[in-house]
């Protein structure tokens, strides 16, 4: 038995769905961010799997860019959470509606 790219893609799909489910059911903004990271990692798994099956390094370059954008997203998102949680430590995701001004 050999590990084929389909295994990776199925694993990636399951991980993506798990991250999405977490994003939907959790209300703590920090945990919701972690779920977004899980979804990004799921996509990275499929990028590397495609890179392997097409024998082209471009897929790994895409993973590199996803990594950079994820880091920037975490920085901005967590600073939003810090700015809001300073006022109210029991912040839930609904309270972010104050952002609409």
């Amino acid at each position: 038995m050999e590990v084929t790219e389909t295994w990776y893609l199925v694993l990636s799909a399951v991980l993506f769905a798990l991250g999405f489910t977490g994003l939907m059911i959790r209300r703590n903004p920090l945990v919701m961010f972690m779920c977004v990271e899980l979804m990004l990692n799921a996509v990275n798994i499929s990028f590397v799997a495609f890179s392997g099956v097409l024998n082209d390094i471009a897929g790994q370059t895409a993973v590199f860019f996803v990594l950079v954008v994820a880091a920037a997203e975490v920085v901005v998102g967590l600073s939003l959470v810090v700015a809001l949680m300073r006022r109210n430590a029991d912040l839930a995701s609904d309270d972010l509606s104050v952002l609409k001004g």
């Binding site: 694993l11 920090l30 590397v48 790994q60 990594l67 975490v74």
Partner: peptide, 26 residues
């Protein structure tokens, strides 16, 4: 998973950036 697909550099970056920097930030 990256290592067994021979994406060694990405595996390294995955540990340093994600498991290191991002989670420590969290």
């Amino acid at each position: 998973l990256f290592v067994i697909q021979e994406a060694h550099f990405l595996a390294f970056v995955q540990v340093v950036v994600y498991a290191g920097a991002v989670v420590v930030l969290f």
